[in-house]
Design a protein around this nucleic acid. Structure first.
Lengths: 206, 206
DNA sequence: GTCTATAACGAGATAGAC
DNA sequence: GTCTATCTCGTTATAGAC
């Protein structure tokens, strides 16, 4: 990990990216754009423009080019959703309720973006996964981490190990699929139904 | 619908596409390639090559260009999975078992393609949906049709209308999300767990 | 670290002969 | 319906001054 802060010649004083280093602005712009347009649909020039950085700076920080940048973008999306999920699980005593609340939150965020911002990890990795192993494995690690958060919380609240393992899988996968459908259908309904069904499924193992 | 058969100068006598008209070969090639590489990652020239057709033929049949072709490719994937789902639902008396069997079949197909062939509708529409309304709505119609098949079968086997409606949503969405995760993780496990959990969820409404 | 210019290539789409 | 040639534009990536 690189920790030395760069000099930040052109950091904007306001707007998204205010006060952030150049590298971080680039990663965030890449993550947001690939979330909406996918890996192949997003150009490096567009990323550099959106991040208020020059093309030279992008290749300075990411000599591996677009693939390296996409890998970082996926890790950024990973941390983002992991934070949301951890907060939900920690702030509610009942994991079933926490999952349903997360589904509602995803639905609200999706609507607020006019159905543009789906899962950044899925959008970025789908289609690039076949030819770019680094991108695929970064996405696999993200899903694994999210499952781990759910799994640990279920274990801590008294579920059997095998049940916790399997429930964690379905919780993440169903949220993923419902968010995708909600985005395509431009409706919150799939996510809201998913939240209720997941809570019911979890409760059925008590 | 166009029903007049074209003249088929160059239809290959063997291999994929044997005995098919040019238009159909193009649609199938587009569907298969976009399933693996996504909309933006697939070029029209690549499609025409794979379909044993010339670029001129592609634009002859699809004057709307890449977007029109992608729309047809999605409809093709729609019909394909609808057929698999209908067969499973009709060949088993218990819809819960039919859903679990479908999950297993998806897992086997995914592994057989070395984890390359995920859901063609998702792969093609994600990333293109924002800027191409026709593509988005074709994908929405596909999901709707699949849900309808499950919904009707649940109704016919005695489930309440509201339960059937909601279960159909979660069945399709969970299969979708589990297939996605299985592809990224290169493992059948997410789909097999999803099949069991969906059967359990359905049974809980009897 | 930042910036500009440009190389090298492939994309989508079109024109018009056959 | 098929085929080839071509136009125009955008892409990733690099070079080298500052």
């Amino acid at each position: 990990m690189k920790t030395t802060p760069e000099q930040d010649h052109d950091a904007p004083a306001t707007g998204p990216g205010a006060g952030l280093g150049t590298r971080e602005r680039i990663v965030r712009a890449a993550s947001r754009l690939m979330q909406r347009q996918g890996y192949e649909g997003t150009g490096i020039k567009q990323i550099s423009r959106e991040a208020n950085a020059t093309l030279g700076s992008v290749y300075h920080f990411f000599p591996g080019g677009k693939q390296e940048l996409a890998t970082e973008a996926i890790r950024h999306g990973d941390r983002e959703f992991a934070g949301m999920l951890r907060t939900a699980l920690e702030s509610r005593p009942d994991p079933a309720e926490a999952v349903a609340a997360t589904a509602s939150l995803l639905a609200a965020d999706l609507r607020a973006s006019d159905w543009l911002d789906g899962c950044p990890v899925t959008a970025t990795s789908l289609g690039a996964a076949a030819n770019a192993p680094g991108i695929r494995s970064a996405a696999a690690e993200a899903f694994e981490r999210w499952r781990g958060l759910v799994h640990d919380r279920l274990l801590a609240t008294g579920f059997a190990a095998q049940d916790a393992h399997e429930l964690a899988h379905t919780v993440i996968n169903t949220l993923e699929g419902a968010e995708l459908t909600a985005q395509i259908a431009r409706s919150e309904e799939p996510l809201l139904i998913a939240g209720r069904h997941l809570a019911r499924l979890i409760d059925s193992y008590r």
